[in-house]
């Protein structure tokens, strides 16, 4: 099958800081791929290329049959609308209430009426089990609640591809399970393709079909979680504490 996302020999530097040194990876449609790796290894930089928040120095970023790194204007917008993004810190708009955070996208990108939008927001909130937070302000939410709301906002427009930047970091084990299960349900119930950045073994274990291990700007190992964990490369042994 044709991959949903294909990254080919991606290079990216910031000044003298060479962050990605030729990353290649593929994600099959309907699968969840985890990108693991230490802090500062370039995981966030990598997935920012998939939505063209960053442009590569060289290399290719394919999404379906489109080159994301070359698209401009309306074409880029059209592709971005089919991608959901959960930012590392949630990136909820803190000048708005939770409901307004959803409405911000729904109002601008759908032709739903006010009542329909309200229903949709409630549906999304129910989905992450936070329906009572409809009128809350993001500032009053806990870290885990914020991540779940941000996740729900990310899927508000029914994306085909979801990018998760550390969806479970800093959460307690119960919330980790909850969020990881949500990622699994997106795959199983909505047939969504996902890239999940995580250092979290539990999250990778629950959600990932495939794991890529990023180290110093290169994919050092790729396979199922088991295979990657059993690798005898010292960098991986170090990471997994084995």
């Amino acid at each position: 099958m044709k991959p949903a996302v294909r990254i080919v020999d991606l290079h990216k530097s910031f000044g003298a800081n060479e962050v990605l040194k030729g990353v290649s990876m593929e994600v099959e449609p309907g699968k969840t791929v985890a990108v693991m790796g230490g802090s500062g290894s370039g995981k966030s930089v990598l997935i920012k290329h998939v939505v063209q928040l960053l442009l590569p120095d060289s290399g290719e970023v394919w999404y379906g049959d489109k080159r994301m790194d070359l698209l401009r204007g309306k074409e880029l917008d059209d592709q971005r609308l089919t991608i959901g993004y959960l930012f590392q810190g949630g990136a909820l708009f803190d000048s708005m209430s939770v409901a307004e955070n959803f409405d911000f996208v729904l109002d601008r990108h759908t032709s739903l009426t006010l009542a329909e939008r309200k229903d949709r927001i409630e549906e999304l909130l129910t989905w992450v089990e936070l329906e009572e937070k409809f009128n809350a302000s993001p500032a009053d939410l806990s870290g885990g609640q914020r991540k779940r709301i941000a996740l729900a906002r990310g899927i508000a427009l029914d994306p085909k591809l979801m990018l998760f930047d550390e969806p479970t970091t800093g959460l307690d084990p119960v919330s980790v399970r909850l969020v990881s299960d949500l990622i699994v349900r997106l795959r199983d119930e909505l047939d969504m393709t996902s890239i999940v950045i995580t250092h979290d073994l539990l999250c990778a274990e629950i959600a990932a079909d495939h794991v890529n291990f990023l180290f110093e700007g290169l994919i050092l190992e790729s396979g199922t979680l088991d295979e990657v964990q059993r690798s005898d490369k010292p960098e991986l042994r170090n990471f997994f504490g084995g």
Binding site: K48, V51, L53, L76, D77, D78, R80, L81, I83, Y85, F87, Q88, G89, A91, L92, F93, D94, S95, F104, V105, R108, H109
Partner: peptide, 20 residues
């Protein structure tokens, strides 16, 4: 300060990713 903190908390990136 407002725009700056929107930048560091990735809210500006979020707007862009929403194709806005």
């Amino acid at each position: 300060a407002e725009i700056g903190s929107m930048r560091v908390t990735e809210q500006i990136d979020a707007i862009e990713v929403m194709a806005l």
